[in-house]
Amino acid sequence: MNADPEMSSWRAEWRVIAPEPQTADQLRRLATKQQNRLRTWQVGELAAALIFLVFSGGLLWRNPVPEVWLWAAIVWASTFAAIAFSIWNWRNLWSSDVKSVTEFIATYKKRCLATLRALRFGLRFLAVQLAISVPWLAMSFTTKRISSVRFFTAAGILTAFTACLLLFGRHYRRAAQYELDELNKSQESPETLSMDLC
């Protein structure tokens, strides 16, 4: 390798580029700060899941009819599925760092595809929940089982909940799709990219 003057001169030039010196203390602080930020995000996700569980549990406790049982069961199933997916996603994100670049790309691609699948799954769950909640709410109102105040409050909560989930879903779908497209673009084979050199 040393008999290659071009490479040797490039290496000499390359090695001149040096980093800002950093103390171990600075590094530890930076890492701790970022880890805390990630932990906050994870705790936020779990808190949101807890709110869904408590809210659906409260509704069921106040009104334990079969339709609410069915709705609550769907909310619980989807919330637990979301928690499981989130935990898998975070574990996967950090543990794949030490793999080779090729394996990492394959894992990352799987992760993006899994996110897209999970979002599709979530939207279907939402459709099922709406298919149960909306007719049940309308019927309860028309048969005067609930007052207009309760009906409009419940309808408002349902609309806000649906809008939030749709916005959240759209944001994550776009992000995952974007990353997947960028990943595919960046991994275009060098053979294709430099055909003129062959």
Binding site: L27, R28, L30, A31, Q34, Q35, W94, S96, D97, V98, K99, S100, V101, F104, I105, Y108, L183, S186
Partner: peptide, 29 residues
């Protein structure tokens, strides 16, 4: 951060240099 998180799990399956470069390139991607 990625190195900080992965370092305690490094058991010498590859060289330390390979380990560091894998993480650096994967994070950069």
């Amino acid at each position: 951060l990625a190195i900080w998180i992965a370092l305690p799990k490094f058991r010498g399956d590859s060289s330390l240099r390979t380990f560091v470069f894998r993480i650096a390139h994967n994070r950069a991607l």
